[in-house]
Amino acid sequence: MTTAHARVESYLGELDRMLAGLDPATRDDVLAGIREHLDATLAEHPEDPRALNDALLRLGPPEHVAADARSGGAPPPSRRWGPGAVAWASVGVLATGVATAPFLVLESMTYLIGIFGDRVADELYLGGLSILASASWATPIWLAGLVAVVVSPRFTRRTRMLLAVCGPATLASRWASTALALGNTDSRLVAAAVIPMAVAVGVTIACRLGWKEAMS
């Protein structure tokens, strides 16, 4: 019984906090109505904790009740985005990916080729390198992506942060690899495999999350 009362009080306490700022008459009405609702449930099933669980579930989360009280019953504004918002979000994700992923792949290849030297791969790598090297496109593209990611309302905070750190993480991985590559074979392997690949995995995760949210 005591636990049941504690749970009722905790629900009402949370609701009370969320109703802060509403006119006192509405607030009292809502709190008294729900208190009575729960008291009546407890009076009907004094020994059954499941009945209270069920009643609390059916009431719904306090934030829904509070939102309804605030909006005067109006439906919450629907999160429907125009095509503009989708475009911004996809530009953000694509630009972030394009400006980081090729460098991470190239970086892994650089050190792996250094370790397991192979002429064919060497040429492939050099071909890729000349394309990337001749392009000073990465920074402006990354910056454009960053702006799109920051202004797009479609991303959750976490995804926005992840997408925003992709660029700096790529740069940091380049520095770390360069420093490590001066050492012995083991540390070069770390430079080649572990660092850029870990960053690449992070970039992939960020872009996939971002893409899902952009298209949802």
């Binding site: 008459a25 509405t26 009405d29 809502v30 109505g33 729900i34 009575e36 609702h37 008291d39 009546a40 407890l42 009076a43 009907e44 009643a55 059916r58 009431l59 719904g60 989360p61 306090p62 829904h64 009740v65 309804d68 009280a69 005067g72 019953g73």
Partner: peptide
């Protein structure tokens, strides 16, 4: 959610569409 009924009842009362009165219950308050 059943909880949203109570803000609704409060609005109806404010608009003068419903009224409330206390009645003794055979079980409980």
């Amino acid at each position: 959610g059943e909880g949203t009924l109570y803000p609704l009842l409060s609005r109806l009362r404010k608009q003068g569409l419903v009224d409330t009165s206390w009645v003794e219950s055979p079980s409980g308050p």
